[in-house]
């Protein structure tokens, strides 16, 4: 029997790891692998020899979506890194909130001293959605309670491909699910109608977040992609 001759079983183990052993010979080998510990050891040794090449390969950064998908697939990881992890990471954004509030002040100045607008068209609350890396505003939002409209102006938007959309979410407060406010425009200004319920929440909302979603917005009604930007509404 081949498996008792080290010369032979070592080669078979090498072929098993390489993958050249196929068909019935491979299945037979796998059977004996469960029977003889020395075969398992030979396989582990070959595997360690060959796969050490990985250390010398030039690393290639994997796209972030892979990590998201791994978490999505494994309940323990999803629990830890997705629902709360994603949305409670707001704390990390504190320094940005300062920048956002500074910009909001500028916005107030603009809205009050810029072109004259009838009183009822003035927003009551404003928000800036900023790009933390580029440090520039991506969208400017104004909430108009009279019209029950959210006025959204696209500024420095970044195209993420034809099959992606940015969706705006309101974070109503502790323990409550994010609520969709709609898909954001990539350019120009649009008026997004807000229901009474949304208006009620928006007034007391703790924050806004923008996630990357499939074209047209999240298919599930809850955010499915990574949070790309955040912001908060300020009363003026």
């Amino acid at each position: 029997m081949k498996f008792h001759d080290p010369e032979k079983y070592e080669i078979l183990a090498g072929e098993y790891v390489l993958g050249t052993l196929s068909g019935p010979a491979r299945r037979r080998f796998e059977y004996y692998l469960g029977v003889y510990p020395f075969l398992r050891r030979a396989v582990d040794e070959w595997s360690a020899r060959f796969n050490s090449v990985v250390e010398r390969l030039e690393p290639v950064e994997a796209p972030p979506r892979i990590w998201e998908q791994i978490c999505e697939e494994n309940p323990e990881l999803r629990k830890r890194f997705q629902p709360e992890g994603l949305w409670s990471s707001l704390n990390l954004w504190r320094p940005l909130a300062l920048l956002a509030s500074a910009l909001a002040v500028l916005l107030v100045v603009y809205l009050n001293y810029g072109p004259r607008v009838p009183e009822t068209f003035r927003p009551a609350q404003v928000a800036m959605i900023n790009d933390p890396k580029a440090q520039e505003p991506v969208w400017m939002l104004g909430l108009m309670p009279e019209q029950k409209m959210l006025k959204v102006t696209a500024m420095h938007t970044k195209d993420m491909g034809p099959d992606k959309s940015f969706e705006l979410w309101m974070l109503p407060g502790k323990g409550q699910e994010p609520m969709s406010l709609g898909v954001l425009p990539m350019n120009g200004t649009v008026m997004m109608p807000m229901s009474d319920e949304k208006m009620k929440f928006l007034v007391g909302s703790s924050g806004l977040a923008v996630s990357l979603e499939p074209k047209g917005g999240s298919p599930t009604g809850a955010p499915t992609g990574p949070v790309m930007y955040q912001g908060a509404l300020y009363s003026i």
Binding site: S47, N51, S52, V54, E55
Partner: peptide, 12 residues
Amino acid sequence: SIKGAPLTWMGS
């Protein structure tokens, strides 16, 4: 550790 360095094992 008998299976090689951790990266090697993950590589396999």
